[in-house]
Structures are given as C-alpha cells and as structure tokens.
Design a binder for these strands. Structure first.
Lengths: 338, 338
DNA sequence: ATGAAAGCGCTAACAA
DNA sequence: TTGTTAGCGCTTTCAT
C-alpha cells in the first residue's frame, strides 16, 4: 500500500489517514466532546488499525509536565523502602503517573546528583527518604515549582510536606516494655545516629531509661560492615552483663541477630526488641518483638500528599503526617505469648 | 535586573545571555570540541549562573530516545525482585539511564497495560519478570525497535534475550540432598505452577524422586491467601507422615514456615529446604537450608544485556544467560553444620 | 568556528 | 464542530 513506514505512527499519520486535521485527531485522543460521534469512531478505528500510541514525551514537553514522579531512597532492597515504593507505585499508577526510582546508597553526593537527574527528567514531584536530614542537602538544586515530600526522615529546617512515624514515643514505649520485664542493663544499637529518625529513637530510649533511673548506653554500628567488622556490637552481644538490646532499625537488627547467634540465647540470656518489622520476625525462635512501622501506609500517604499538591493543593503550611507504630509483642522481649 | 522570569531557563536564555547562537550553546552543552575555549567558559558560566538544567524530555523527543528503561515485576516488595531492581538501577545509572518500575501484581491484564504505559513513555528498553511466561502476553503491543529482556521467567516461544537460573538442575540437587538424608516422603510446595520457573523446579524435584524410586507429591498454594486459607498446605504441615518439605519459592516458604510454626519442629520432625534465599534464613532456628538465587546478578546481567542491545548489539540470535544457583547447606535439611 | 532555520510529536490559541 | 498557526526545548543539516 503506502510507502515504507519504518517509525511509529504519529498523530499526524492518524489525521491524514482519517482525512481530518491534526487538531481533530488530537481532540479525539484527549476525549474532547467537541467532535462529531461518527468522526470519533472513524478516527479511533484508524488509530487502532495503525497501532497508534501517543508519545508521552511530546505531550509532556508541550504541557510542561511529565506525569512522572521521582522517588529516592537509601537502599532499594531494604524491605522497609521496598514496601514504601510498592505503595507509591500503586497510588501513582491509579492516577496516571509513573515512578522513577533511584537509590542514594546512603551517599549525600550521589543523592544530589540523582535528584539532579530526576529534575532534568522533568519529574512533577519527588518523594525522598533522604540519606541525611541533618542538613538540607538539595533544596538549592530544586526548580521553583517542584513538589517534594519527605518520608521517614524529615529534613531539618525545610518546609516540605512529610510523612513520618512516632519515633521517639515508640522507642520510649518499647524501652519501657523491657524495663517492665525487669531488665536494667539495656543497650541500644543504632546506625547513622546523625539521622533525625535514629536520633529521635535514641532520644526516646534515653528518656525512658533515665526516667526509670537507669543508665542509658548505646552503640553505633557501621552499616556497611559485617558483624566481624563491628567489634563494639560483637562485644555487646557477648557481654554477659547486658540484659537486653534494643535495635533501632532493620540493619542493626540483622547485625545483632548475627552477633547473638553465636553468643547467646535470645529471650533467655538476653531480651531483644527491634525497630522495624519484617516478614520473618514472627518465624524466628523465639519470635521477635518489634516496633512495626507502617511502611506501606507511609508510601501511600506520601503519594497522596504529592498528588494533592500536583492537583492544586496550595496550602501555604506544609502537611506533616505522623503515623503511629505498633508494638508487636512476641517472645524475644520476654513475653510468653501463644 | 531582567524582567520577571517565572519558568526555568532554557538553552535559548543561555544563548541570548551569552551573546551566542542557540546552536553554539547546544554544542557546549553536549561537549562538542568545535567551540572556542573562551566561549565555552563564558557559556558555562552563564549556565551555572542561571541555574540552567537541560530538559531531557525535549532532548528525548528530538533524539527519539528517552534514556529510560522500564522494569516490570510481579511484586515490588518481594526481596528477590527488590534485589534485582536494585542491581538494574545501579547499572542503569552508571550508563546514564533511569529506571521506571512498575508492578504487574501477578495480573496479566495489568501487565499488559503497564507495558503499554511504558511504551508510550518511549522507554528505550524493557526488563520483564513476567507474571506468566506460558503465553506471550505482550509482544503484539511492543513497537518495532523496543528491546526486551526477560528475567527469571522466560517467555514461551519468544526470542527475547533472557537471564534465568538453573531451575531444574538446582531443584533436582536439593531434592537429592534430602533423599541422601534418608527422607522418603518428601513433598514439594509450589505456587503458580503454570510458570515456567516453577514448573522446571517441580520437574527437577519429580525427576530426583522418581530416580530414587520415591513417589513425588506436590501441593499448590494460593499466593494471596494466608495459611488459614490454604488448607492443603496446612494439612501437609501437620501430617506426621511427611518427612520433608521442599518449598519452591519465597512465598511458599513463608507460608510453610507459618504452617509449621504451630505444628512441628523443623529439622527434627520435618526437614525443609527453600528455593530462594533471604536475609534471615540463617537466623532462623534451625537455620534454613536454601537454594540461593543470585538476584543481584540476575538484574545486573539483564541490565548489561539491555545496554548492549541499546548500544548496537545486533546479534540475530537471542542471548540466553543461565546463572547457577547455590545450595546453601544450613540446618533445616538435617545437616548439623556449625 | 558559528549561525539560521527546520522540525521531533503534540496541544493550545484563535479563527472560521 | 473543525482547521490553521504557533510553539514546548532541544538538536541538526547546511550554509557561512
């Protein structure tokens, strides 16, 4: 029939083929009602015959929006972030957006450059779990109208909408629970204590300890290192005087579980509570008592806030959603449930 | 100084401000050597003063490529896929690509529509862990030049490049290991048996059983349901005659661990091997013997294949990478390591 | 070494 | 109801 058509059909091809103008075809594409029904049908027929697919890049260029949102987390394979991403993606899809994910690998320089990449891609919004909320690491590279939502870790001094959890209060409760069990020498294990999240948890822990007249003690781990490279943690795990351990995030929990494996019997020799739940916590022996963070809700709420902003929520003041956690009592804390 | 500049500066702004033509500015942006050094410096200065950021959408529209790759998996929060995504994203970033991730939620219709979305976004390539490789679910909606790599689950009858693991052989070995331990009544637990991946594993299991003169028996689970809604699995877990269980993927493992929790002592009453490793397998009591799939390598190789294709690998025949797994012997199979 | 002009695929005035 | 005409921001012949 026609000449050799190598590349994908454009809207112009559709228009020509249906004998209408470009604009009319465009109207049909966008579901405008201003077109006579018979034409609509005819044009749609041509579209499907040609296998026409609108080019979102062109559309975005024109509309100055990409219908894409960027999401950046410290580690894509961390189950907490993975769940958050899953929730964000779902809400995004339901609203016609796609999600571009990147990892900062806990590196501030990389975080900046990744944000820059996303900005150049014209993402309409950004959801960030920053690698370090202590300083505002990127507001200087954000364009005027870009909407940003921070999750998990808020950014000090910045006015972004945020979704966080009750870190301090939850840590206090968990600590108190251990104290109620009769433990006195309770050690907190934390990584990246410069993070607001971790600092708050440590704060809550310290608070509870002091209130009970006990001496707080904590130990900082190197995220990247194995248990072998974290002498301090290893010592804590082996120390017979330590009665209980409170791990302040998933990474710490993994590390301490490793350390304890060879040293002590959890629940008996030492009690343990973990901040961050994960699929298998219940299956361990003894099952792990955890502070469960609502990872999916975090992602879902962040996506909702962002979509709200993109759909014209002009609120001057930033929305700050703080979600509750849940202390899931299982056996490692000394409870004998089940 | 100047008039009110609301929107982001464009390359034209840069050109005007530096007193050169648009093309010269473009050359500088792209690092062309055909410009006098002093001009380069001057233009770059203007760029950074204005806070200029190239618009990748415009660039992509012109170049007919987006420098984005799409990735679609059945479930974003599954640790196996999360690790694969992490690896893909890393390789992509190193090569100037971004990754748009979506989930098919194990739903073929959704998978199709998500692919369609990605195609409209003009992704340059697609990495797919399909929800069902039995039928080719989408080749009809792919445009001419789109590169596709399948991971984990190949697509029956299609000629895409693929990265998979030695499912059959690995399952055979794991089964044989249990047989060597003296177990005779070994049950395989599988979900989505219509998947090539799962079918192969089941095949390997059956093979080994028959070869040993034992009767293969398997049980299919409903992925979405809890243990309560999976009577068959629950029965298997409670059945005193069952000597060993081989779970054919992560979801099955979770389910069986739940089921076994209330019923039997793993390693003693019943032996267990899981296809799919995960962070905590070692920490369970007893620690879990697993067939470890190299999730990161899978992602990395897929990304490499894709980038190779995008950079002009014209090979007619498709590349089929098959990665080995590793049988990680821990205690749940009856081994008394450590 | 540099610039003018055309156009990627689409949408939005503004007419008709 | 429909079509014409400009661009969105960038790259790219083809001159100069």
């Amino acid at each position: 029939m026609a000449a050799e058509k190598k590349s994908a059909p454009t809207l112009e091809d559709v228009a020509r083929e249906s004998g209408v103008s470009l604009k009319t075809a465009s109207r049909v594409l966008n579901g405008s009602l201003q077109v006579r029904p018979d034409k609509v049908a005819r044009i749609q027929a041509v579209m499907s015959r040609l296998g026409y697919r609108p080019n979102e890049l062109a559309r975005g260029l024109k509309a100055k929006r990409s219908s894409a949102i960027g999401m950046i987390v410290p580690r894509l394979s961390d189950p907490f972030y993975a769940s958050a991403i899953e929730a964000v993606q779902q809400v995004a899809r339901e609203n016609g957006y796609v999600v571009i994910v990147t990892s900062s690998a806990n590196d501030q320089a990389l975080e900046r450059s990744e944000i820059s990449t996303l900005v150049r891609r014209q993402v309409d919004g950004l959801i960030i779990a920053t690698a370090n909320g202590k300083h505002d690491n990127f507001s200087d590279i954000l364009p005027e109208g870009l909407q940003v939502i921070t999750i998990d870790e808020p950014i000090r001094g910045a006015a972004y909408d945020s979704v966080t959890v009750t870190n301090k209060q939850s840590a206090r409760e968990a600590t108190q629970h251990m104290i109620d069990h009769g433990d006195r020498r309770i050690v907190a294990v934390v990584s990246r204590p410069y993070l607001h999240t971790c600092a708050e948890r440590l704060f809550g822990y310290t608070d509870a300890m002091k209130q009970a007249g006990l001496a707080p003690q904590h130990c900082v781990v190197d995220q990247e290192g194995s248990i072998e490279r974290n002498r301090a943690v290893k010592d804590i795990c082996a120390d017979p005087k330590v009665e209980a351990i409170f791990t302040l995030n998933w990474v710490c929990t993994m590390l301490v579980l490793h350390g304890l494996k060879q040293a002590k019997k959890i629940g008996k020799d030492v009690r343990l509570i973990s901040f961050d739940d994960f699929e298998l916590a219940e299956m361990l022996s003894p099952s792990l008592t955890v502070v469960r963070q609502p990872a999916s809700e975090l992602g879902r709420e962040a996506a909702r806030l962002l979509l709200g902003r993109l759909n014209g929520d002009e609120s001057e003041k930033s929305h700050r959603i703080v979600l509750p956690t849940q202390l899931v009592l299982r056996n490692s804390c000394g409870c004998h449930s089940r």
